[in-house]
Write a protein that binds this DNA or RNA. Structure first.
Lengths: 153, 153
DNA sequence: ATCTTTTCGTTTCATGTCAAAGTGTTTTTT
DNA sequence: AAAAAACACTTTGACATGAAACGAAAAGAT
């Protein structure tokens, strides 16, 4: 029998919460993936969604919003452009920047898909009461803001 | 101004909880990644960890535990084998199966790394009280088990 | 003005990821 | 036992992912 690391009780509690958090995130993600199948990847949808929600952004701003590396975004944007869903334009005031915006096709695609994805997420979270959802959100937020300054609300 | 999808309040609540869950999971994952950097990928560590914890398993069993596809596992196991951390052996009672076990080097590696990863996770979850960690775990568990039978404890 | 540093994005490299099709093995049918 | 179905894993193809090195543009230093 393999001997496990002898953890403190604080460690055991944290690891237990950790794996449950990870599994929940992965399970929900995989279910949400359903409506997108054959249409877009999850990341592609995320990029279109953020553009739809906030309007044109630079590549770096998008990377920050969707929590992906810059190098990664380059490829995702290239694929979206190839498929005619976004367009790029050099920022005239800063020649290093690309301004990314949705094309008409991109807007149409994200508009059609968003309700389906939202419905899938809502169905997933229907296992929790409204109060539980709020509590979960609160705990996740508190968890995530480690190392941040207190300037955020 | 882009017009957002007009969601019901249940939808808004669910989406809000959803993005907080995802961001928390991603943030924690990226911080946990630190101790592994240059040593192993997160998935590789996950595979070694499950083998360390439960002993030798078939490829399919590992895939199930770490929530990855079979095709994916093939590659991850190949890389781990190349690095001398695991060994494969045909199951004599079922010629389709591979039995995967840790090598001495694999055991050593995971033993050295596990405490560091556990400490990183513990530090991350220290932002929450013990009761909050338990609550978060409970909510995640409840969220994840949608569509499951009630046979599980 | 020139040099240096910083910043934005791209490229490269190694790995991970899934879906779908394929290969060989075992089990089930008939 | 031969055929069919189910199963465990592999292969392939397209895409995602991060780190690190790189190129170009902007900002700062002198």
């Amino acid at each position: 029998m393999p001997t496990a690391h002898q953890g403190s009780s604080a460690e055991v509690a944290a690891l237990d919460a950790y794996i449950k958090l990870m599994r929940a995130a992965e399970t929900v993600t995989s279910r949400v993936h359903g409506p997108l199948l054959g249409e877009l990847t999850v990341t592609q949808f995320g990029v279109l969604e953020v553009l739809h929600h906030r309007g044109a952004l630079s590549a770096g701003e998008i990377a920050e919003k969707v929590l992906k590396s810059a190098g990664n975004l380059t490829l995702v944007l290239a694929n979206l452009e190839r498929d005619g869903l976004i367009s790029r334009e050099r920022d005239r005031s800063d020649g290093r920047r690309w301004i990314i915006s949705l094309t008409a096709a991109g807007r149409k695609r994200v508009s059609a898909l968003f309700p389906k994805v939202a419905a899938a997420i809502t169905a997933e979270f229907a296992h929790l009461s409204r109060a539980e959802q709020a509590m979960l959100g609160e705990l996740c937020k508190k968890l995530g803001r480690g190392g941040r300054s207190t300037s955020e609300a």
